[in-house]
Design a protein around this nucleic acid. Sequence first.
DNA 1: CCTACCGATCGGTAGG
DNA 2: CCTACCGATCGGTAGG
Lengths: 196, 196
Amino acid sequence: MARIRTGKDGSRKDVIVKAAAALFHEKGYKAASMRDLAESVGVEAASLYNHIRSKTELLHDICFNVANLFWEHISKVETSDAKPIEKLETLLRFHIRQMIENFQEVYISDREWRYLADPYLSNFQNQRRNYRKRFAVIIEQGIADGEINKIDASTAVLIVLHAVSGIESWHRSKHKISGEELEENMITILIDGLKK
Amino acid sequence: MARIRTGKDGSRKDVIVKAAAALFHEKGYKAASMRDLAESVGVEAASLYNHIRSKTELLHDICFNVANLFWEHISKVETSDAKPIEKLETLLRFHIRQMIENFQEVYISDREWRYLADPYLSNFQNQRRNYRKRFAVIIEQGIADGEINKIDASTAVLIVLHAVSGIESWHRSKHKISGEELEENMITILIDGLKK
DNA sequence: CCTACCGATCGGTAGG
DNA sequence: CCTACCGATCGGTAGG
């Protein structure tokens, strides 16, 4: 009879993925070695391979966890009956909070996805392109409704998403401003820049 | 008697630095090998070392070329007698144009500087911090003059500088918008977001 | 500018 | 989970 202990060693793999996120953020995916990772987990490098298939798999897990999170969120926002400008603010606040609370994973999915290997690389790029298009549609609805300034929607998406990634610098510096203040400041500047 | 051809092989090194910028942008500093670089220049890897000292030196040259360029520009802007909001627009337009025309170098100096080694790494970080502080001072002057919305100046700097780096995505995509249109769109959104 | 080559380190496997 | 180890590749040097 099999033991009650089922096959799931999920918790062990989770520890490795979390450690990988911290390491990839700190050193960059290419510069981070599996020996670094093993040391931070507290095992020998070879032992990692009982829980994961490859270094790439770790990057893949991190990037798609983040992509799916934002994907699910925008799906909920789209079906709400809020006005476009409100939807935009909801999306933006979610981005800001994720960048504050979950920033290692988000950072990696923003900056290091290009080291993904090719079936996954294309999937990731498609998902990303799709997300931005849906984001732009909401802005275009706001323009059509006369709530948002008449600007190129995809330029606005570019600006807004990259602006949020600036929170990385906030994390690096000893921040004199709290996360809440940062969020309100960002919302003010970005939403006012778009509003008519 | 020495030939007229003086010792300056500056042009040869320039070719290597340019090729390195293209390669570091395409693959990332760590993932780009000196053999890749040699191939793109058309020589064997060992031959590169007659013109450069190390891989790090290439990164160093690229990062400080860019940092010095922005440094000189902000120095000129500071001494002009324009109003703060106009200074801000001048700075922003310079950032946007550099990101459009000179984007490989600027991208590397934005994203890959962390692979610099330590005497240079600290210098670079200091220069960067100093630049952002001077940028923030201009915003604060605009707030004091009542031209600019009352927001945290360093958050505004963060947003604005990172927003501009979004032009990287514009380069990657087959752009439907011209550089000029992109510039005007960015200026509209960002300056309106700051204006009172 | 090239050939030849170095020591270090990489991701990953075999076998227990 | 460990020891032992692999082939590949890295940045860089010697010597001409």
